[in-house]
């Protein structure tokens, strides 16, 4: 291996040989499928089994003509916003304690514990909540044990159950991104602020929050996007109340077999996410 060099003769072949296979794979398995999906979204029916679809905007029009899809989209956006909100409220203080209040070997161990669920099986973690939340489940029995009486929790198969499950799934993302940016804030800055008489709240508001904004935003994006596209979590924890844009898209592919509509809804979903980020960027930009 040698240090990075500029344009030696014959290196084009080496570059092609090294990057070619990986990018060919990415093209076949990601880029072409997404392009094909985009193409399908403009067809009247999927060009499969001898059928030929015709060019149409009907799939996109359906979204705007049938209020049902719009309502679901808004419901999904609201779900995304709520999950992001709770992840931030729960995760930021946690990252703060980890980054600035715990030191040494303890910090390393606790940090690992927090992100351990980060990669572990998402499906299984969602499933584990069913036992907690269902009627006469662990949570209800625990509450009953503390406050005996006829207190019914029964939030399984509700919107709230979906929020709890998703917050549980994505909380480590927020903790991780906030932790990374908080760790980069030097202790000197905090001590300088203290020497000038700043209270903890002032330090949080004027130094820690502004300086960890990139991490917070990264967490927001990392959570918001997959939550909008989630379908497994609402199906398991939401039951009949778990209908969101993600589950409708899934239905188009696995139950209704209206692929062009599913494709169009997917791109509308991506578009909505894009619009939300563009708007929030505008709002943030105006503030400072």
């Amino acid at each position: 291996m040698t240090s990075p060099a500029k344009g030696a003769p014959g290196q084009a072949g080496a570059i092609l040989a090294l990057t070619g296979p990986a990018y060919l794979w990415l093209t076949v398995a990601i880029l072409l499928p997404l392009s094909a999906m985009f193409y399908f979204s403009f067809l009247s029916e999927a060009p499969l089994a001898g059928k030929t679809g015709e060019w149409t905007l009907a799939n996109y029009r359906a979204f705007f003509e049938q209020g049902f899809y719009g309502t679901l989209m808004l419901r999904s956006l609201r779900l995304g916003a709520e999950v992001v909100f709770w992840c931030f409220v729960l995760g930021f203080p946690c990252a703060l304690v980890l980054a600035k209040s715990v030191k040494g070997r303890w910090r390393e161990a606790l940090f690992l514990l927090v992100i351990l669920p980060f990669w572990s099986n998402a499906l299984v973690r969602i499933f584990s909540w069913t036992m907690m939340l269902r009627g006469n489940g662990i949570l209800e029995r625990a509450i009953d044990w503390v406050v005996p009486g006829r207190f019914r929790l029964d939030i399984m198969f509700t919107y709230e159950a979906v929020v709890i499950g998703l917050v549980h799934s994505y909380l480590p993302y927020m903790i991780l991104t906030c932790y990374i940016s908080l760790q980069a804030v030097q202790d000197d800055l905090i001590e300088a602020a203290r020497s000038m008489g700043a209270s903890r709240l002032t330090i949080l508001r004027r130094i820690l929050l502004p300086l960890s904004l990139p991490g917070i935003l990264a967490g927001v994006v990392l959570i918001f996007v997959p939550v909008i596209g989630s379908f497994m979590e609402p199906r398991i924890l939401g039951g009949r109340n778990g209908t969101f844009i993600g589950t409708v898209i899934e239905d188009q592919f696995t139950a209704v077999f209206n692929w062009p509509l599913g494709a169009a809804l997917s791109f509308i979903m991506l578009g909505c996410v894009g619009v939300v980020f563009a708007l929030s960027r505008l709002a943030l930009g105006r503030r400072g």
């Binding site: 990415l26 398995a29 990601i30 072409l32 499928p33 997404l34 094909a36 999906m37 399908f40 999927a46 060009p47 499969l48 994006v221 996007v225 997959p226 909008i228 596209g229 989630s230 379908f231 993600g246 898209i249 899934e250 592919f253 692929w259 599913g262 494709a263 997917s266 979903m269 991506l270």
Partner: peptide, 21 residues
């Protein structure tokens, strides 16, 4: 970044559609 950033629902259905096609 797109493979990481795009929801798996979309990547998955796109693969299904393309591979089938």
């Amino acid at each position: 970044f797109p493979p990481i950033a795009i929801p798996w629902l979309i990547t998955g259905t796109a693969m299904l559609l393309f591979f089938f096609w």
